[in-house]
């Protein structure tokens, strides 16, 4: 039961959404964009979030696109995680988002919602970091296409009133060998202790992580260590661990020490899975 009242808008177009946002905001109200809505509903129920109005983006056709267009894969922000997985358009992304929540929830959770999650995991981020993805953003100045890594810095950094329309990925990224690993405390359905996505491109491994630090990340320094063929696998992992961008998380899913142990295993698994494709 959500304790507070709010207004609900479901615009049919991008311009209508932007206009609605401005109109409501100018009335001094707190307005937020709404996609799958699962986090809005659950956080509002426990008084951890509130808004005077929500703008549901699911009615905007551009946000519902899921297709291959020339050299690009185009994924609308309001497409559900299950649709992405089932389409097999970008298999690594499909695998990564299949590890979010449970199957039924994934009919509701959208990729846009996952990228904007208030939790530290946001596993949809990992493949996008690996694939040098771009994102199409709507704002009052119009639409712009930006590099995902510029927009995502520990979290999505969109300006006020802006929202994510689409994710654009070069098609070639769908064909690289990949692996996606999620390790949990006990049950498969649960927050990750470690989540890892990796691809082999140009005989090099690219790896991105979630659950390890307080935000999802890809690290050039860690990749350099993992790709250092002068070192044994063990040493590469040891080096990579010494270059983590932030402290390893210590929480109720796992202690810092155990998480490190799980991360080492996951890295071994990833290097092993991609061993034919990397040097």
């Amino acid at each position: 039961m959500i304790p507070f009242d709010f207004e609900y808008y479901k615009p049919d177009s991008i311009t209508e959404a932007i206009q609605t946002f401005q109109d409501i905001e100018s009335q001094g109200k707190k307005v937020i964009y709404y996609s799958g809505g699962t986090e809005f509903i659950t956080f509002s129920r426990i008084n951890k979030l509130s808004a005077d109005a929500v703008i549901d983006l699911k009615g905007i056709p551009e946000c519902q696109v899921l297709e291959s267009l020339g050299d690009l894969l185009v994924i609308g922000s309001a497409v559900s995680l299950n649709k992405i997985a089932k389409s097999n358009l970008f298999p690594l992304l499909g695998q990564a988002v299949k590890q979010v929540a449970d199957h039924t929830s994934r009919n509701k959770i959208t990729i846009g919602g996952n990228l904007h999650s208030r939790l530290i995991y946001r596993e949809g981020v990992l493949p996008l970091l690996l694939a040098d993805a771009q994102v199409k953003i709507a704002g009052k100045e119009g639409e712009q296409v930006l590099a995902f890594e510029d927009v995502f810095q520990q979290e999505m950094k969109l300006g006020p009133g802006q929202f994510l329309i689409q994710i654009l990925v070069e098609k070639s990224y769908a064909s690289y060998q990949y692996i996606s690993i999620k390790k949990t405390k006990t049950s498969k359905v649960g927050y990750p202790v470690v989540s890892l996505a990796a691809i082999a491109k140009d005989s090099q491994i690219r790896a991105a992580f979630s659950g390890v630090c307080a935000y999802p990340f890809r690290s050039a320094q860690m990749e350099a260590a993992l790709n250092d063929s002068s070192l044994s696998i063990e040493k590469r992992i040891e080096q990579a661990l010494s270059r983590l961008p932030a402290p390893i998380v210590n929480d109720i899913q796992a202690s810092r020490e155990y998480r490190e142990f799980v991360l080492i295993n996951a890295l071994e698994d990833a290097l092993d899975a991609l061993k034919g494709a990397i040097s």
Partner: peptide
Amino acid sequence: GDCGACTILINGEPMHSCLSLAIE
């Protein structure tokens, strides 16, 4: 959205009805 006891079908897809607004 953790237990599935409220599962219903929308367009034939299973959904947690606790994770949808009626207006949606």
